[in-house]
Design a protein around this nucleic acid. Sequence first.
RNA 1: GGCGGCAUAGCCAAGUGGCUAAGGCAGCGGUCUGCAAAACCGUUAUUCACCGGUUCGAGUCCGGUUGCCGCCUCCA
Length: 482
Amino acid sequence: MALMLYNTAAKRKEAFVPLERGNVGLYVCGVTVYDLCHIGHARSAIVFDVLVRYLRAIGNHVTYVRNFTDVDDKIIARAREEGKSPDDLAQFYIDAFYKDMDQLNILRADKEPRATEHIEGMIDMILTLIKGGHAYRAEDDVYFSVESFPGYGSLSGRRLEDMKAGSRIAVGENKRHPMDFALWKAAKEGEPYWDSPWGKGRPGWHMECSVMSSHFLGSTFDIHGGGEDLLFPHHENERAQAIAANGGDFARYWIHNGFVTVDSEKMSKSLGNFLTIRDALTLYHPQVLRLFLLSQHYRSPLDFTRGAVEGHQAGLVRIYRALERMESVIGPWIDNKDQGADGKGGAIALPDEFRAAMDDDLNTARAVAFLFETLKEINRLISPDSADSSGDLSELVRRRKELMRSASVLGLLNDSPAEFFSGIKQGEEGIEREEIERLIADRSAARAGKNWKKADEIRDTLKSMGVVLEDGPKGTTWRIDV
RNA sequence: GGCGGCAUAGCCAAGUGGCUAAGGCAGCGGUCUGCAAAACCGUUAUUCACCGGUUCGAGUCCGGUUGCCGCCUCCA
């Protein structure tokens, strides 16, 4: 079994072989911190979170680098609007990023550099590019010369001639070629700046990723990821300038996740369908969102609709109910040292079917299907009329281990059933425990007297309060309807 | 205009030329239950947008048609 990944650069699935056996370097483009993260950021973060967890689960040591873009035109504009300093604004949204991503059970990267921490490195790279004839100064700006780099366009499958021909890009007065892009931008009045050989200014957008990825992972490293929209121009430019400056191959595998649409529309502020993670979390439990976002292949576009998400909520509730029942049969699930995908050590044992799905370009949809197949087995084993239920529990223990280990690689089922159900219940504050218990006691008395009419009335009353009853051999239990 | 992607059941969705087209949600029938709920069992696509072609064999490959979407400008 070997992990196959779709490499955008090759336009096909390739066997993933790291540069150094057992050691993987991964760089993912993070966010520009000028606003709250939306559901599309969540998808990207989750996809690469799962990639990291899986790479570790199969025994790799992973160095995961994810940046924050904290200097940028949008940040400057937004800070000005809010009367804050760009630094304060950036810090505010970095904090918000962590808050949202933590809820979605997204692991921290090993290195989380900010663009502003690497300005010197960027200046050095620009100097190298100028020296090598790949960049030129135009007044106080510096541009990269795309014509100086023979492979320009190969990553995104574009040809310079085509782009020039159909170009909607205005030819900057100072640019030699319309596709040339800024490496260094002179600061205008009132903008943040750093001193440089070209005067006060700030780096162009693509610089940071070239510099920071090379800084932490070397001039040739294993995987570079990001949203598909970053392929061009960002990744194309990032790669061109990095290779032009440092040599090497830059990233060997390029992975791009597909977009999220909301009700079939691309998210945009003008359409008013810009769904932040925060808003989504008021509607759905984070685990539900996570399951939904992993329920289709990462490269496919994903349409966020209420109906689709709620379908997955129903499925997740079913899994957690089974986990709850298992707790009463074989005790709570305890994390063993050898389980979980956060380990730094060797591979963990994963079911073959799960591995086969994940090895196939992280087919999380198939991996999720495996979870549900395992769930069915588990339910069968603990079903009251199951032939197996009386005797051997080792099969159940084994199945649960398979389920939980697989789920942990997906970052799912990390809550206990109790946590999950208390998290997913809505309107619980309006419900009085004592009142419910009293009604149930009344109903039990009625049932004992075979007064079914009264018993059913009480059940209906509770139902209208959002409480569902389950009569079992050990009495009546209740839960909040979800 | 250039480049790319997608069309599989009521809905979401997997499917890497070849046994009976995964899985989830919803629905229906059954078991269990006083009745329910939950769980289990069964059931729900002779067919994969449409038309051709290649092949012994195609949802899977090729060409065309239609429809939807993305990138080419900041974007996960």
